[in-house]
Amino acid sequence: MSNATVELLAKDLNPQGGVFCPSPKADMKLWNTHPKVYLDVAKTGEARCPYCGTVYKLKAGEHFGGGH
């Protein structure tokens, strides 16, 4: 199980404010280690993958939505 933390920019999130894990941003070598899962990062600013434990979080100062 990984305890990696992946910092994301707002532009890294999809239009719904989330990401999928496994993600190339997490530098995972084994792409098919677990089923693809959607993580809602925008809601709380971070989300943990229930399969591998990787935490995806918005970088400090980044805000999702807000209409840039």
Rank of each mutant, 00 (worst) to 15 (best):
A47Q: 07
N32I: 07
V55G: 01
Y56P: 05
K59R: 15
A42R: 10
H68C: 04
A4V: 00
N14M: 12
G61W: 05
A4H: 04
M1P: 07
E7S: 08
A47F: 01
T44G: 03
V55C: 01
K57V: 01
D12H: 15
G66E: 13
P24L: 12
Y38Q: 03
S23Y: 02
E46L: 06
S2T: 08
N14S: 07
R48H: 06
M28K: 09
S23H: 10
S2C: 00
L39I: 05
C49V: 03
D12R: 02
N32E: 14
N32M: 14
F64G: 07
A4R: 03
E62F: 02
V6S: 10
G17K: 03
C49K: 02
A26M: 09
A47T: 06
P15F: 05
G53K: 01
Q16T: 01
L13E: 01
C21Y: 06
N14E: 11
A60Q: 10
G66Q: 11
V55A: 01
N32C: 11
T44K: 12
M1I: 06
P35G: 13
Y56T: 11
V6M: 10
A42L: 05
H68M: 12
M28D: 08
L39H: 06
K59E: 14
L8T: 02
M28Y: 04
L8I: 08
G65C: 06
L30M: 12
A60T: 13
P50E: 04
F20C: 04
W31A: 14
G61I: 09
S2L: 00
A4W: 00
K57G: 10
Y38R: 00
V37W: 05
A26V: 09
D27G: 09
G53T: 03
A4P: 00
V19S: 09
A47G: 08
R48G: 04
K36F: 11
C49P: 02
T54N: 08
